[in-house]
């Protein structure tokens, strides 16, 4: 029996989310007294793989080919290793890829699936996990009753633990089967921090008054190394692209720090940001519901507050 964690490199590097997944796997494996296997698909340098030892990786399987992503193909690769290593717990990120693979993988392994779990299992026997439902309006304790379990872990819910393992690295070919889907083109947004991975998000709402006022917001994001986002009315109005829409029907995010600028805080928006560690709200209406979700609040007009914020954070970063 073992624990298998699948992590995704991006351009040959690992992000913080991957370290959290490795740490998580280490803690689950040690609680179950089982071996931990980390599976990486894609070409990654040896040092980068070795660095996972800091988070408790002892055994790493690296399929060192750049295989175009396909739900079925990746499910096949991961399930093969899961079977080979007799994994009874398989952990993935609750990322776009993790979400795509996990349900297929669960069926292929005859496993029960729990997605977007928060933190470590509440119990291992029976296997009980915590998660949210109704878009964050309720917490659920769920038991997975099958022998094999597949989980996707919500970002920033388990934290990173430091270790000093020197991992054994196995480099393997995938024997990947041909995919039924064909990629015609790929478009990658470069030079921007991604919403799904961002530690800090600067988000604007209707209170920004118009697309022409986004410059200072983008400046603030740049200073903080943050991703930019927006509320639904803003993307519906076409002020910002749809992929920036955070909320119930848009993206659900879980950064350490979320700035809600000129966002009133409709229940659908709050559903998308409720997993943020810290929320800072700026709004001219002191009664705006966003303040009941925020940790820190400023009442004021963005036209004057935002430039002051940008200046102050610039100074802070420079010091």
């Amino acid at each position: 029996m073992s624990v298998l964690v699948y992590i995704e490199p991006r351009e040959g590097k690992f992000k913080k989310y991957s370290f959290e997944l490795v740490s998580y796997g280490q803690r689950v494996a040690s609680a179950l007294d089982q071996l931990l296997h980390i599976l990486v698909i894609g070409k990654v340098a040896r040092e980068e793989l070795n660095s996972l030892g800091q988070y408790g990786a002892t055994n790493i399987i690296n399929v060192s080919e750049d295989i175009p992503f396909d739900d079925q193909v990746f499910t096949g690769i991961i399930s093969n290793f899961a079977k080979q290593k007799e994994a009874n717990v398989v952990v993935l990120a609750h990322s776009l890829t993790g979400r795509a693979i996990a349900p297929r993988l669960a069926i292929r392994l005859g496993a029960g699936l729990s997605t977007a779990v928060n933190g470590l299992p509440a119990s291992y026997k029976p296997f009980i996990v915590n998660k949210k439902a109704f878009s964050g309006k309720t917490l659920v304790q769920q038991e997975i009753t099958t022998e094999v379990k597949v989980l996707t872990l919500s970002q920033n819910t388990a934290g990173i633990t430091e270790h000093s393992a020197s991992p054994v690295i196995e480099e393997i070919n995938s024997d990947a089967v041909a995919s039924a889907t064909k990629v015609v083109s790929t478009e990658v947004i470069t030079g921007k921090v991604l919403l799904n991975e961002a530690e800090i998000i600067v988000s604007g709402g209707r209170g920004m008054r118009g697309p022409e006022n986004w410059k200072p917001l983008e400046e603030l994001a740049q200073i903080l190394g943050a991703a930019t986002a927006c509320s639904r009315p803003v993307s519906d109005e076409g002020w910002r692209p749809h992929h920036e829409h955070v909320g119930q029907t848009g993206k659900v995010v879980a950064p350490s720090l979320y700035f809600a600028l000129g966002i009133s805080g409709a229940i659908q928006h709050l559903a998308g940001i409720s997993s943020s560690k810290v929320i800072v709200a700026v709004n001219k209406d002191p009664e705006a519901p966003i303040f009941s979700a925020a940790d820190y609040g400023i009442v004021g007009d963005l036209q004057s507050v935002l430039p002051k914020m940008t200046e102050a954070f610039r100074k802070f970063k420079a010091s």
Binding site: A106, A111, G112, L113, S114, I128, K132, A133, G136, K137, T138, L139, V140, Q141, Q142, E143, I144, T145, T146, S274, A281, F291, S292, A293, A294, D295, Y296, G297
Partner: peptide, 16 residues
Amino acid sequence: MVKVLDYQAPAQKSSC
């Protein structure tokens, strides 16, 4: 394959 054991309201955020 999974069953819900318990529901709970999320903790209220401390005041802003």
